[in-house]
């Protein structure tokens, strides 16, 4: 399996994905939420529609061309994704999302040491002074900045 073949396969799937999103924009989202009303010259939806058509045309062409190249190389369209690699891609997103949800209920200055410290530990750092320093310094900086902004009346 050459990197070229993998690129073609990725192009097919990303092309299909982008084309589907563009189709959804054109059929459903732009007509409903793209704005309406009387306009001189250009309708409020015109530019968004044009952008969606450009997306659709380019992504569909990309998918078709990459599919043809993939077939010429007799390479399969599907490839099983190793679950370990997938998990490694996904967990950082879930980690950040968890803290974003927590930030809706707790101040970020309380969460800050845990955001940094837990991730550091997960990445294999076990020296306590590194964990402490890396977590405490940015937290203190955020706290001081917030206090300063509150004093000058910004926050």
């Amino acid at each position: 399996m050459t990197p070229k073949t993998q690129l073609q396969r990725r192009n097919v799937w990303s092309g299909i994905g982008v084309a589907l999103v563009a189709g959804w924009l054109l059929i459903w989202l732009i007509p409903r939420y793209g704005g309406s009303g009387m306009a001189f010259g250009m309708h409020p939806q015109r530019l968004a529609t044009l952008g969606a058509w450009v997306m659709l045309a380019c992504a569909a062409t990309l998918a078709v061309v990459s599919f043809i190249r993939l077939k010429q190389q007799h390479a399969p369209l599907f490839q099983s994704i190793p679950l370990g690699a997938l998990w490694y891609q996904v967990w950082p997103f879930l980690y950040v999302l968890l803290f974003i949800i927590l930030a809706a209920y707790l101040p970020l200055t309380w969460l800050a040491p845990f955001i940094i410290g837990c991730l550091l530990a997960l990445l294999g750092e076990h020296r306590w002074y590194v964990l402490l320093g890396a977590s405490a310094i940015p937290t203190a900086a955020l706290y001081l900045l917030t206090v300063h902004l509150m004093r000058i009346g910004v926050v």
């Binding site: 192009n11 793209g34 530019l47 968004a48 450009v54 997306m55 380019c58």
Partner: peptide, 17 residues
Amino acid sequence: SFLKGMAAGGMGVILGT
């Protein structure tokens, strides 16, 4: 790829509106 570049440009235009 030029096609990917144009598609990305399309996304930017939509978000810009």
